[in-house]
């Protein structure tokens, strides 16, 4: 089994010295992400969810809690499940949800959570590509990195909560343990960051690493040879049917392989001002 792609424990230790808190447990796991990709461009990270393979086991939900120490009462990743049909022709389906790391609409390429952030656009920052080139981008308390990750800078966050409302998917919450750096009387916004601390160290996100069905496939859309690129092409995922709430024009980058049209029949949208659709529960 030990083929060349699975380094032994020793090799995995190479990151142990790097060891900022942020690297998380992550760094030492099997790197399955090819970071060499895209020559002079930044990568464009994306997730493909193969719904045929999701067995509703919740390993992703808990792995995410553990990796990111997510407090009780909120989640960065959940499974929605629904029983449909009439006995004995009953079906049950599972739908994994997370932040869609939207590209934003075609006009300005800014997703709604970023657009609404009072701290955006802030100072310019530099993103270094694999080949050493620099891409400049605008920061904010919520901002889009050139590699497509939508991230939160909790130091800049003022805890206003506008992004919580602006996200049509309702994947954001306030972290009760982290104060907003911009207004310490408030709590900072929080959500899935694609395990940026892992990905930046060449390691796939925690939910992907533990997914026993291999329903979660993570990678670089700008690399035509990546598994996500191939899947998007093979299953023709870049169309409205294969993302959540395409009508919002957010251009999500979580794509669903969904031959049974689960998105349409199952997805429970957030109710305005509420987030209870994003609490993982087994009936």
């Amino acid at each position: 089994m030990s083929d060349n792609n699975t380094p032994d424990i020793n090799r995995r230790k190479f990151l142990s010295g790097v060891g900022t808190a942020a690297v998380g447990a992550a760094a030492l796991a099997t790197p399955r992400v090819s970071l060499e990709a895209a020559q002079s461009k930044a990568p464009r990270w994306a997730m493909v969810m193969d719904l045929r393979r999701c067995i509703g086991c919740r390993a992703c939900t808990v792995a995410c809690k553990s990796e990111n120490n997510v407090s009780l009462g909120r989640f960065r990743a959940v499974i929605q499940e629904k029983t449909m049909g009439t006995f004995p022709n009953t079906k049950k389906e599972f739908l994994p949800l997370m932040c869609n790391h939207c590209e934003g609409n075609e006009k300005d390429g800014v997703p709604p959570c970023v657009k609404i952030c009072p701290e955006y656009p802030g100072k310019r920052a530099k993103f270094k590509t694999a080949d050493g080139k620099t891409i400049r981008y605008r920061t904010g308390a919520t901002y889009k990195r050139p590699d497509g990750m939508i991230l939160i800078d909790k130091e800049k966050c003022i805890g206003c909560g506008k992004c919580l409302d602006a996200c049509p998917y309702g994947v954001r919450s306030f972290d009760p343990f982290v104060k907003a750096g911009g207004d310490p009387t408030k709590q900072a916004a929080d959500k899935c960051d694609l395990c940026a601390h892992r990905v930046d160290n060449g390691v796939e996100p925690s939910c992907v690493n533990t997914c026993q069905g291999r329903a979660r496939i993570f990678g670089d859309l700008n690399d035509p040879n990546s598994e996500v690129s191939k899947l998007v092409k093979e299953h023709n995922l870049a169309k409205a049917d294969n993302v959540l709430l395409a009508e919002e024009g957010t251009n999500p980058h979580v794509f669903y392989i969904d031959p049974d049209n689960i998105l349409k029949s199952l997805y429970t949208k957030r109710k305005k001002g509420k987030l209870d659709h994003f609490v993982d529960q087994i009936p």
Binding site: T30, R58, T61, S66, T210
Partner: peptide
């Protein structure tokens, strides 16, 4: 490297 688990862990394990 486990030939049993192929590197996977369930919710309880996590």
């Amino acid at each position: 490297d486990s030939i049993r688990t192929l590197g996977k862990l369930c919710a309880k394990g996590q």
